[in-house]
Every structure is written in C-alpha cells, then in structure tokens.
C-alpha cells in the first residue's frame, strides 16, 4: 500500500508499485490532463510536479511518489490562473494543445526554482519538452513574461 497526495487529496494505491505515475493518474484517478507522448522520458508531455519539482510521469513510478505531493495540470491553480497559465493564454501559445500541459508544468517548475531565468536558461529548461506544432517561440515569450510575475 502506497500513500501519496495528488493535488492536495490523500490517496492510497494498492496496485503494482512500478506502475508509472502517468498511468496511475490517467487510468486510475481519471486525471487526463497529463499526456502520453513517448513513454520514455523523451518528450515531456507527461510532466507533473513531485514536491514542487518537474518529473516525467511516464518514467516515475507510483512507488517513487510514496508520501510525496503530486501536482498535475488540474491542480496547478484552483482557477487555472497560475501566472504561467495566464501567460500562455495572453501569448495565445497553444496550437493542438496536446503538449501544453507538460510545457506549462515544466515552465512553472523552472520559474519556481529560478524566478529570473536568462534566455539560455529558459531554452535549456524547456528543451526536454517537445511541441510538434512548433509553438516554441510563443512558449519562450510566455515563460519570459510569466517570469516577471512569479
């Protein structure tokens, strides 16, 4: 039995402790905001926060989240108004949107650790997240402007 908190709610998990967090969130809890893009830590679509830091949900087991706080896109802000979310809408970032939950979670964690990143730090910090629609220039601009707010 594994205990963890997901978006502030205590959860008990009885299944295979090796199950990746991504599938626990999606299939067991119905939190489908985190996406499956590669299953191998290569694209960032599944990014969630573990005790505030970004991790890839597809290669982080439920066991690794034991007794920790998991935050997903659904729990980032009660009203969807985290500065990063607002910046994303202000810059009209999304195209298809599939990568964006992961991008936003990555950016929120980046700014949490480094509230005033340089251009290079933004690029390095976001380089693990793929967007096939090619919204990178707007992502860059949105992170830059969110940085002035967090």
């Amino acid at each position: 039995m594994i205990s963890l908190r997901v978006n502030g709610v205590s959860r008990q998990f009885n299944g295979d402790p090796r199950m990746p967090l991504l599938w626990y969130l999606r299939d067991e809890l119905g939190l489908t905001g985190s996406k499956f893009g590669c299953g191998s830590g290569l694209c960032g679509a599944c990014t969630v926060h573990l005790d505030g830091g970004a991790v890839r949900g597809c290669i982080t087991s439920v066991e690794m989240a034991a007794n920790k706080n998991v935050t997903t896109i659904e729990g980032l802000d009660a009203n969807g108004n985290h500065p990063v979310q607002r910046a994303w809408r202000a810059h009209n970032v999304p195209q298809c949107g599939y990568c964006q939950a992961g991008q936003i979670m990555q950016a929120a964690s980046l700014l949490n650790q480094n509230p005033d990143p340089s251009d290079k730090e933004i690029v390095d910090g976001m380089a693990g997240n793929i967007c096939r629609c090619g919204t990178y220039q707007r992502i860059f601009a949105a992170v830059r402007s969110a940085a002035t707010e967090v």
Partner: peptide, 21 residues
Amino acid sequence: MPGVDNFDITTGGANFGADIS
C-alpha cells in the same frame, strides 16, 4: 482571435482521443 480552447488546454480540461472513457 485567440484559440477558443485555450482555457481548457491550459487547465487540463481539453479532451483528446485517449481522454474519453
């Protein structure tokens, strides 16, 4: 005009293929 689905997309509420059960 900004995208109509921007709010849902930025809050995890937008539904894609595998999100339907």
